[in-house]
């Protein structure tokens, strides 16, 4: 392994880590607050990517504005889904998981019927290459880091200092919701779904110019996100972010040094081992 190779893998891993952080935060929120396992979260990512493609490529709106619009659109979609489908599923892990796979079918087919199955490309927004430590990296990939950092920081500020954010944290730490000070649990649930959806859409929109956009992006990412959530501790947001980077680096290094299938095997094995050996995850506080 040369140094250049190492830097390349490290950069890729960091990028994946940010993507997974954005994506898995929503899953953790929804699990921590509603105790549901939502695999349709992957579809929110996919729809976010499609929305950015639609606003940016088809309507010609500015990229960052498209991203914001996509986040708003997916957030409202997520809240609708929560209200109709997930409300009766609160607290039921496996039924909610099965329900969410049903929603995967529904959302995937809806997107296919609007936009077809062909891959869509989103034009590069930040073209160009830079040389860092003698290694050539594309600006586009590097730009993911500051943008997702901004989204994550805004989210954490909201969680720490706003009234609703505090209510969300309280529900996650105390499942009985005893700490809810005059905030309705339904509002908190909708908010969690909405924020989670917006962050998934942000991840989708950010990655759209790098990868292709198609209707089948969701499920594989949903699995990765789920593994991250389990590894991090399921209700711990710092744990989720730590786990996202661990997964990102494992995926990047193992894919390059061994092969992509081995990376998938590693991810599955991590899931199995963590569920059995340390069910509370790396930073979880659940018994």
């Amino acid at each position: 392994m040369t140094f250049a190779q190492f830097v390349q893998m490290f950069a890729n891993g960091t990028m994946l880590g940010f993507q997974l952080s954005l994506f898995a935060t929503g899953l953790t929120l929804v699990y921590g607050i509603m105790h549901i396992i939502n695999f349709a979260h992957g579809e929110l990512y996919m729809i976010g990517a499609f929305a950015v493609w639609f606003f940016f490529e088809e309507l010609g709106i500015n990229y960052l504005a498209s991203l914001a619009l996509a986040m708003a659109f997916v957030a409202s979609l997520a809240i609708t889904l929560e209200r109709i489908f997930f409300k009766p599923m609160r607290g039921y892990h496996i039924p909610s998981f099965i329900m969410s796979t049903g929603l995967i079918f529904v959302l995937q087919v809806s997107i296919i019927s609007f936009f077809g199955v062909k891959d869509k490309g989103v034009e590069s927004v930040f073209p160009g290459l830079v040389k860092i430590a003698g290694v050539t990296l594309s600006v586009e990939r590097l730009m993911i880091i500051p943008i997702s950092l901004v989204v994550i920081v805004v989210f954490y500020v909201f969680l720490r200092w706003s009234r609703y954010g505090r209510a969300m944290r309280a529900v996650m730490q105390d499942p009985d919701g005893a700490a809810l000070q005059g905030v309705s649990i339904d509002t908190v649930c909708s908010l969690a779904m909405g924020i989670g959806g917006a962050m998934a859409a942000a991840a989708g929109g950010l990655l759209a110019p790098i990868f292709v956009v198609n209707p089948f992006l969701g499920p594989p990412l949903a699995w990765e996100g789920f593994i991250v959530v389990c590894l991090g501790g399921r209700t711990s947001l710092p744990g989720t972010i730590l786990a996202a980077f661990i997964m990102g680096y494992i995926k990047s290094f193992v894919s390059t040094l061994v092969d992509p299938i081995a990376a998938l095997m590693c991810a599955a094995a991590i899931l199995g081992v963590i569920l059995i050996v340390r069910p509370q995850g790396l930073l979880g506080y659940e018994a």
């Binding site: 396992i37 998981f97 081995a262 095997m265 899931l271 199995g272 069910p279």
Partner: peptide, 28 residues
């Protein structure tokens, strides 16, 4: 065998994980 100490959701996804590792062996 490794899944047996777990129950419920944990059993469900742990069995997935080991089944998936087995399936990926066929791919690899």
């Amino acid at each position: 065998l490794p899944c047996l100490p777990t129950t419920g959701t944990f059993f469900f996804f742990a069995s997935y994980a080991f089944g998936e590792v087995m399936r990926l062996c066929w791919v690899r």
